[in-house]
Nucleic acid binder design. Structure first.
Lengths: 146, 146
DNA sequence: GTCAGTGCAAACGGTTTGCATGTTT
DNA sequence: AAACATGCAAACCGTTTGCACTGAC
């Protein structure tokens, strides 16, 4: 129960602890990720960071995202054909993406855990549930298309 | 129990039935896919088709693969960062890909079915098990790395 | 003052497309 | 002959990289 810093500060503090420098573009990107409740592409992150700070280049965003991933502060996953989506690490969960409207849902770990256990038992395969999203059709698109 | 045509002929016959023309590049690509027991990238398919036929362009291979997919004769899936892999449709199965050695395994439908049912029940989400591969570490790489 | 971090522009890999030519029907 | 399929080259999109410069420490 200590006076909690903002989630944004927590991430920046972790960077500091790893001898990373705190720069304006980093503040902006972290802020965007903290504020985002969806999963964002690098391009979306860039655009939003530019709103906050004006002039953040895409390459910088990619470098910052890579740094955050190295420190396990963020992860990305691949959703079908589209660009990768990034988000800060929270509780463990999987992803499913709608092929039609491209919305990405998080799915509780429980749903994946059974499959993960089965893969381990049968193939000795260790599932990384973050990294690749399953795809299919969301309820809305299914109703619309069929 | 009729005298069975080769799998290759079956695919070509299906093309014919859909008023598609049977060309040398198509024969080569279909032959490659029939012979392949792994999942191949478009580039690998192109290379092997060129061995069979000399001079098949990558763009033609992509167009043929698209045609096969339109007719549900083939599917592709995305494995982590790498290029998409293609294969002819057989029994329904899912994919898991090793992040380290990039081998793709097929996983029996049963393993995915439970997850699929759960996604349908909880989100109304219809899983397309073909389209995106889950990733993780295969038994061999796990043993090597850890 | 040093070095990590930045912006820019160019390169990259996988895939798609426009167009003139060739081949199947 | 007509329609479709092909090869080539150029475009495309998401991402990465080389480099000179800036700004955090």
């Amino acid at each position: 129960m200590n006076a909690e810093a903002t989630p944004c500060d927590e991430v920046l503090e972790t960077l500091r602890l790893h001898a990373k420098r705190i720069t304006e573009p980093k503040r902006a990107v972290v802020q965007v990720l903290v504020d985002a409740h969806e999963h964002l592409t690098a391009e979306e992150i860039t655009q939003r960071a530019q709103v906050l700070r004006g002039d953040v280049s895409p390459s910088t965003v990619y470098r910052i995202l890579e740094e955050l991933e190295d420190l396990s502060l963020a992860v990305h996953s691949h959703a079908g054909h589209a660009a990768a989506v990034y988000h800060l690490t929270g509780q463990s969960h999987g992803h499913v993406t709608c092929e039609s409207c491209h919305v990405t849902f998080e799915v509780s770990s429980d749903s994946f855990n059974r499959l993960a256990r089965e893969l381990m038992d049968t193939l000795g395969f260790e599932l990384d549930r973050h990294h690749v999203a399953l795809s299919g059709l969301c309820a809305h698109c299914r109703a619309t298309i069929h």
